[in-house]
């Protein structure tokens, strides 16, 4: 794969993503106990990661070239990875199962 950004843009992305990581982390640690977060905001913040993770993962496994394709190798691979994650505590297994299914379907069956 090639990245659709040049080197300078990529480093700019790293710096901005780094700020978007360090600022939330440091926020209250740096401010100290002086400021408190309203409880509605606290609850809203709890749901942001789940929403963002699903918004990245679901289209990636359900769409092929922007079209809805419920039967595709990536969905099968994601199913295998999810099954492995739910059934086993081994941290490697989801990756072995997911990549195994994806490679078998793509390289083995040419899907």
């Amino acid at each position: 794969m090639t990245i659709p950004f040049d080197d300078a843009s990529l480093w700019l992305i790293f710096v901005l993503a780094g700020l978007a990581t360090t600022l939330p982390r440091a926020s209250f640690i740096v401010l100290g106990g002086r400021v408190a977060l309203p409880s509605l905001v606290q609850r809203a913040l709890r749901y942001a990661p789940a929403a963002a993770l699903a918004a990245i993962v679901v289209p990636d496994v359900l769409l092929v070239a922007g079209e809805f394709a419920p039967l595709n190798p990536k969905l099968a691979a994601a199913g295998a990875a999810a099954g492995a994650a739910l059934l086993s505590r081994n941290p490697w297994l989801p990756f072995i199962a997911g990549m195994g299914v994806l490679l078998a379907l793509r390289l083995g069956f040419g899907l």
């Binding site: 939330p24 440091a26 926020s27 106990g33 913040l45 990661p49």
Partner: peptide, 22 residues
């Protein structure tokens, strides 16, 4: 959008940061 998504993925840290600040 890349930065906004990073921020969304990191918002949980605002809560952690508030909880451990003391």
């Amino acid at each position: 959008l890349i930065v906004a998504t990073t921020l969304a993925l990191n918002l949980r840290f605002v809560i952690f940061s508030a909880a451990i600040a003391q």
